[in-house]
Design a protein around this nucleic acid. Structure first.
Lengths: 339, 339
DNA sequence: TTGAAAGCGCTAACAA
DNA sequence: TTGTTAGCGCTTTCAA
């Protein structure tokens, strides 16, 4: 039967009811602490009766960190990012860590946000976005705060990272398109640069040049569906005519491009032009798109992030580590692969 | 020039450097506190020099709450939900509140997750999902913890809510389809029930019955694209033949249904059958879909949530309030509206 | 407006 | 294995 208590029960109350010290209560709620089964049992019974739960704020005040990890991201409503954050969040929660979500669109106010994260003694920060200013990352370094970055470069090469190799990605895209018979390549990429998205697009162009294949670059304002679609709709038809294989820096852009090509320009894919995306978001497999793409394994990515984070949490002196993601081609209907 | 300090600076350090008491430091960082501009200035200078920032854990230990609000949600990677969470998160951050993200798929472990939220003395909880067990909500009530629910019912009618009226939604859907010339209605809905999604589908059926219009119900396993698409692909053709206006309980399902109808069954929309969705997610306006739908204004929704939360934070004795969202029909190409 | 002093609820080092 | 003691960093009466 629950005791009627006005205020929230504390370890003191539990200790009293269980007839032990507050330390005993603390130990009962600390995994792997030195405590006898009997004592733990008494404490647990008393705690249950009072409806006691450890105050994480007070606990965090005592320990290295509060058990909170910050997730910094932008464009949470995009298919890829929302999936990444979902998986990261679930993985963290499974580890007993609570994710604090920091969504930012303009890097401007990011500084104060990171600051406030630090005020909560976060155990670390996960950055799933290319746009966190390097200076801030440098700050985290000074504070010895674990940072794991997804698909971005580190500041001064510091910071654990999970990345897809941009060079490889770009080269693979060229390979695939060429294998499917494309000879005159094009690359649709956002004007606003981002480590991974711009990086693989650049690498694509470099790889095309290296093979002395002709290529065209098409710039969209940014990486939304609309940005991509209108970039394609507005591009000079002669430029487009010179392309028979278009690599789009993200699936979302590829989907926008497909709608631009087919609906706005009346072209046929893959007959007139082949299209290759990157990421393999859910929408890539929707019937009207059936998009050929290069898969980014988001599940494995989340696992890798957690592993890097955990390792660093238990040994902060570890050297910086970089986990390379594997790339998987997924050829569907927007390319002409031999079947 | 920053002092070299091994440990993180505390209010004590700042007080020392500024030549004031720790209380003064505290006041300098408390909006609206009684402190002279000169003192505040001294403190701020000293704080800046030391790189001091308030420890939110210690502060939260003292005050009513920690400035954290929990966001409980499932299916974060779905278009609607990710947009909702993005807007909520941004709005909270703007208010100086930090969102703690709790993603759950199975209600099972939700209990302990809410528990752990409480351990952080959260200021409140925002629930954007129908599946939080009522019992847990009831717990929050006992703890006098502010809860704002989005599109779900309260436990024992308690708890602030932002909802779209299900009856209205269902009736509006019938109205729209009928106005567009449909006479034999169908409703695609998930088997797994959810307050808002099942609610408006039920209301649709009720409204159709009330008008003595013939209707068919098509059940999908759940509310994903794939669930919807395969439900449509597998439905008895005679059943489908009896439908000329199909209401899908969410846009995502409508999109799955469209792909099922067109690609898998070879039917024409809107010629053979008209389709109406609900939510107006971004994908609804993508070229191949051009989906007619009923818009849920997610921006307004987020604002309403924040307002309810803020109000309750400043006056916990407020009676339960329910904010009704407005519904906006968005007729596009999957219905035959007179133009 | 300011400072002194008393906690907030917990864990960790130590001694028993 | 257990209890005692001393903080963690802050806010908040209270008195000046």
């Amino acid at each position: 039967m629950a005791k009627a208590l006005t205020r929230k029960p504390t370890s003191f109350d539990v200790a009293g009811l269980a007839g032990v010290s507050r330390s005993a209560v603390s130990r009962a709620f600390t995994p792997g602490a030195n405590i006898s089964p009997e004592t733990r049992d008494k404490v647990e019974r008393a705690a249950a009766e009072l409806g006691y739960r450890v105050n994480s704020l007070a606990r965090g005040l005592q320990q290295k960190h509060s058990g909170i990890v910050g997730i910094v991201c932008s464009r949470l409503d995009s298919p890829l990012r929302s999936r990444q954050v979902r998986l990261l969040s679930e993985a963290l929660i499974r580890e007993g860590i609570k994710p604090m979500l920091i969504t930012v669109e303009t890097p401007g106010d990011l500084g104060s946000l990171i600051e406030s994260l630090l005020g909560y003694s976060v155990a670390g920060i996960i950055v799933t976005d290319g746009s966190l200013p390097r200076a801030l990352i440098e700050d985290c370094r000074k504070l010895r705060l674990p940072v794991v970055m997804v698909n971005r470069e580190g500041a001064s090469n510091w910071g654990d990272r999970v990345v897809a190799n941009n060079q490889e990605s770009g080269a693979l895209a060229v390979d695939l398109l060429v294998k499917c018979g494309a000879r005159r390549l094009g690359c649709l990429m956002p004007q606003r640069r981002t480590y991974s998205v711009s990086g693989r697009a650049d690498a694509f162009i470099a790889a095309a040049s290296a093979r002395t294949l002709p290529f065209e670059q098409i710039l969209a304002v940014d990486q939304s569906y609309t940005d991509a679609r209108s970039a394609i709709a507005q591009v000079d038809r002669r430029v487009l005519g010179r392309i028979d294989g278009l690599f789009c820096a993200t699936d979302l852009m590829a989907i926008g491009a497909l709608d631009g090509l087919r609906t706005d320009l009346g072209l046929s894919v893959p007959e007139d032009i082949q299209v290759l995306g990157y990421d393999d978001i859910e929408q890539a497999s929707w019937a009207p798109y059936d998009l050929s793409t290069i898969r980014q394994n988001v599940e494995a990515q989340a696992e890798a992030v957690i592993e890097l984070l955990n390792d660093r949490l238990s040994d902060s002196s570890l050297p910086t580590r970089v986990h390379n993601q594997e790339l998987t081609p997924v050829l569907r209907g927007t390319t002409r692969h031999e079947s």
